[in-house]
Every structure is written in C-alpha cells, then in structure tokens.
Design a protein around this nucleic acid. Structure first.
Lengths: 344, 344
DNA sequence: TTGAAAGCGGTACCAT
DNA sequence: ATGGTACCGCTTTCAA
C-alpha cells in the first residue's frame, strides 16, 4: 500500500454522543413518546401537523438514526434473515442466486444479512447466529445438524431452512442433490458408448461437499454396468493438469467428467496439448453450463444446473415465518440436465 | 420444486418463550448478576466453583443463548463490521478478498456482516446501515458520499472505509484505481506498436464503475499520441460478440482491451471464428489474470490486478477503530501490471 | 393530542 | 461470594 499525504485532521477529537430519541424530543420540546409516534407514523395516534414538523426537523438537525437493537429488543422480534457468508470462491450461479434472494426477501420487507463465520463451525456457529435473534436462518451446505437447528429455534428463529445434500431434522430442507449432477454426466457418457470413465475431484478445500456427491452420482449411474469409474484428484493448476495428462495413455480412459466447466477447460487444454483428441479419444463433460464452455473448441458438453429461484425461496421463508408451527417442507430443488455439445 | 411427502407435524404449536438470563438465574437459584458474571468469566468477581457449575448446567439445560442486541445496547457498542453485500456477480478475486478479510477481522475479534441492501442506494443505504450501529463500515465501490459517511459517524461508527475509485471526505479511503488497469493495457498495446485500439465496455449493469475508469485509463495512456481509442459496447453473449466480430474489418482496429479476461475470451473466440488472426491482425489483452487466460490459445495477455491483502485492511480497520480521532488514511491499493503472453 | 412510565435482556456498580 | 438495581434506547399501553 502506498501512503498518500493527507491534510491534517480538521475534526477535533470531540466525538459527540450519538443522538437518541430523547435528544430529539428535548430539541422538539415534546416527549419521547411523541417522537416515536411521529417517526413511525403510528396510525393509532393522531399528532398535530405542527408537532410532526418540529419533530422531523429536530431529527434531521441532530442526524438522528434509530437504534435497531433497542427497537428489536423492545419489539421482541426483528425481520432479519441470516445466512452464513460463503467461505469458498463462489461462481456466477450462486452469486446470482444470492442476489435474487436478497432482492425477493427485501420485497417482503426482510433484511438479509450474511454473517461471516470463518473458522467457526457447526453448533458453535449456530450459537453465534442465534445471538442475533434472526427471524429466519438460511444455511447453504451441510454443517448444520439437528442440534444447531434446535438452538436456533429455541432462540426464536421462526424458520430454519437448509440448502444442502440432505434434509436436516426440524428444518425446512431444500435438497440440492449433487449426485444428480454426477448421475446425469455418467449416464450421458455411458449412452455415448464410453466405458472407462474418469471423474475429476478437485483438490481445493471446501469443495468436497459438492465433488463427493457428484462422484457418487457417476458411480451410481454406472453401477451394474461394465463401465469403470476412476477417481482423478486434481488441483486447479496448469501443472497438475499437465501431470494428469502425461499419464493419460496409461490411465486408459475414454471419457472424463471434470467436476465443472472450469476444471473441464483445464483438463481439456492439458489433454489437447498432449495430443489426445476430443471427443474421439476421450470425451469430456463439465458442469454448471458456464459461458466459457460454449467458447471452447470443441464446444464443451456440460450439465446444466438449475438452482431454485430466489423468489420461490423467499416465499418459502415468508410462509415459514408466518406459520412457524407448520411441518417442515422438503423440496428437491436442483435440476440437472445434460447440454450436449461437441466434446462428448 | 418437487414436493416430497413429509411426516406429520410432531411439534405442537407450543413455542416456548426464549430463555433469558433471568430464567437461568431462577433455575440455578442465583441472581441475574451472578449468571452474567459466570457466563462472561468476569475476572473482577470471584464466583465459587459450585455456583459456577449450577449456572452452567442451568444455561445448558435451557439452551440459553445471550441476546446480542441487549448486550450491545447495554455496552453501548458492538464489534460488528458491516459491509454491503455485493450486488453484481463477483469474481474469484473479490471472493477471495472478502474471505481473507473476514478471516483477518475475525482474528481481531470483529464480526463481519454483509448487509443485503439491494434496491437501496446512497444515503438511504447509509441510514439503514447506521441503524445497526456497527463499529466500522467498509464500503466497496462508489455510492457512498460524504453525507453518508457523516451519518455513519454520527451514529457511532468509529471507522468508515471506502474501497473505490476516489476518496470520500471523512472516510478512510482505499483507492482502487481502475484507470491504472486501463492505463497499463493501453501503454502495453501502444508499446507493441498498436495504434487503433478498441476497448470493450460491458453492457451489464453494475459494472460501469469498473469499466468506465478502465476505458479512461486507456484514453489517458494514449493521449497525445497518434493512437485512436474506440469504445466497443458488448453484452456478455456469444451473439453480441459475433455481431461485433462481423464488423471487425470495417472497424479497422489492430488491438483490443477487452475489459477483463472473460470478455477477452468471448471476443477472442468470435474474432478467431471470423478468421481474424491473433495477435497478427489484432492484439487482445484482458484483465484479472484468471487461470482461464493461460489456457487459451494463443495464451491471453492480461493485466494482473493486486487487491489489498485482507490482513492489511483488517489492520487498518482495527487501527481506525482504536483511534477514531486520527486523520483519515488514503492508500492506493490497486496494483496493476501487465502479464505479457501470446495474444498481444 | 400529548406525556409518564413500564419493560425488553443484559451488565456493572454498590451493598451486603 | 452474591444480590439488588439502575440503565442502555425504544415502543406502547394508560392516563391526563
């Protein structure tokens, strides 16, 4: 970081205390109650227009901002929907999903907050979330057990929704069945006549919860056939891909499901550099249906993944919040379908 | 979404009230004060071992979780660092930056919260953030003016840090000078003998604050030379790229800076399909130094971007929080350097 | 139409 | 070593 010379400090260290509604009341010459009525447009109470004006002016003059904690403490509830911030590099799919969800929940007057719990896991994390008394908690991935759900509910969360590989007792569950992704890919390769199938498993941490089910899905698709499945650990580096490609002949595979499109590109490039013809010698298929796959030559076959729409999920949350007694819903929300292009 | 049959509701609608420290005290047969002392390990007070045990047991039995709002209300401050959640698809660079930052702030005992303000802008957003009384606010991008900074400070934020194109009055500013990125690219292309330079400007919303400065940077690099700069609006779609490529001859450009590596790949593919030779006919350079650029043929030249380290930024925040009176620091934090490969 | 006051859940001072 | 209690900022009866 390059320091840039700054003007000398012009604000003296006089950190005035933060203005409260009492300050506003004092300045406006009214009671705190009146301030509250005015600023919240309380319909049950009529306040005269002159008073309203004085209150508003006082508030503006002081730069008054209400204290959310005090408010929700008094109210006994908030409209905060909490989700843990993702701790792995997140693709455009998930990015967009989050955005959409935030927008949809915002429309329903919820506030979405992503809580950065890094290095904190499982029930410990659940406790930390519970301290904020969110009205709902949305947890992607595994990592939240029935214990955690229970902690959250006992601390007032009216809805706990998990988005993961399996349903969690007591919580609404959106099943994102990544096995289906692998199953799709496996079946496709099999149908195309491939029998010696490699499956790339990323070396990077945090991806296991996606990669393992995808691998399992391939295994399941090929179970009971004469096809073989070979696990191919691979770090996301050119070097690693080259090494893998170098022993390709000896691996004797005629197809590879590369975990996702990015790994597929990595593998495809390494194989091509090694003189392996795609798809003649080896078929390649990725997943996520990224733009980049369309741009590769040969065009990359892929498994298109459909995440739940943010709107649907927002509605599920809202329903759950309004009716916390209802039985947890379980939905399969991950649509997987092959997009066949030229690499397979 | 596919509905899966559920077991009948087994929890009756008896949502017990959330246990408070008073409940714990009652169950343990002690006062609320004692509960507080025990659960916080208050060192100024000795509590006998048997009492401690009873309190801990009672807390566990009730599933007691302290109420963060009440605590910070009483304490008069929290350790929450708030940042707005990004509302645009975020690349691996930024993803990693956030992760690192959360980790580093976590080590300093701060809690990072990404606040989902979608559809709320400028000072309105600042007010919403201020309601949470964060101890520090970190704002990427433009969109926060001196007004907003003032609102935040007056509501108790001890540090406001902006990460954007220009410094904001009253806030610590980390200057992410995307002009430098464009300047790098422009100079590089000029040095390689190119004179008719196109600059891709993404059509997607939310990217203007990056793309415009990058364009300006190219302009600045080429100002006063005989080189020309042509703005090339482009949506991130194959179609749009094809249309652009179709009129390439008539555009008569010998180089293009493609905003970033992803757009570069899009453009490169379209140009190659059109029979334009790279780099002979047209040089291409991207930005962000993604893995994918290394995998393209020809290998993609790019502008490597160095974001500030999460640790450094966390330390800046901590320093600012501990010493709120200090003059705002301003740092240039965006390192840009050309990685010359084969496409330019 | 407005004000006084109770209380939300903790913490910390001052007694005991 | 422990308990009583005031107080943080705000909302909401209830009374005037």
């Amino acid at each position: 970081m390059v320091q840039i010379p700054n003007p000398p400090p012009h604000s003296s260290p006089a950190p005035r205390p933060v203005p409260t509604s009492a300050d506003v009341a004092r300045l406006a010459g009214v009671s705190r109650a009146t301030v509250s009525y005015v600023l919240n447009n309380t319909s049950a109470v009529r306040i005269s227009e002159p008073t309203r004006r004085r209150v508003h002016e006082a508030a503006k003059e002081l730069g008054y901002v209400p204290h959310a904690a005090a408010r929700s403490l008094r109210a006994g509830h908030s409209r905060m929907v909490l989700m843990p911030a993702p701790d792995f590099p997140v693709g455009p799919l998930y990015s967009q999903f989050i955005s959409e969800l935030q927008w949809a929940l915002g429309r329903l007057d919820y506030t979405v907050v992503q809580y950065g719990s890094i290095g904190v896991y499982g029930d410990e994390a659940a406790r930390a979330w519970a301290e904020l008394r969110p009205v709902a908690v949305l947890v992607p991935g595994a990592g939240l057990g029935p214990q955690g759900v229970s902690v959250l509910k006992r601390s007032g969360a009216r809805a706990v929704v998990t988005l993961g590989p399996e349903c969690v007792d007591g919580a609404h569950s959106l099943l994102m069945d990544h096995e289906a992704v692998g199953h799709c890919a496996g079946s496709h390769l099999f149908d195309r006549g491939r029998r010696r199938i490699g499956v790339v498993v990323p070396g990077e941490a945090g991806l296991e919860s996606f990669s393992q089910p995808r691998l399992e899905g391939v295994r399941r698709a090929l179970h009971g056939t004469d096809a073989t499945v070979t696990e191919l650990p691979l770090a996301y580096e050119e070097e690693a891909a080259s090494r893998l490609a170098a022993r390709w002949r000896e691996l004797d595979l005629d197809a590879v499901f590369a975990y996702n499109d990015e790994y597929a590109m990595l593998v495809m490039r390494a194989l091509q550099d090694e003189g392996v013809r795609i798809p003649e010698d080896t078929a390649v298929i990725g997943a996520d249906d990224l733009m980049l796959g369309r741009l590769l030559r040969p065009r990359l076959s892929t498994v298109h993944i459909e995440l739940p729409s943010g709107r649907d999920l927002a509605e599920l949350v809202d329903r759950a919040v309004r009716n916390p007694g209802a039985a947890p819903e379980t939905h399969k929300v991950l649509g997987a379908s092959v997009v066949h292009r030229d690499s397979s």
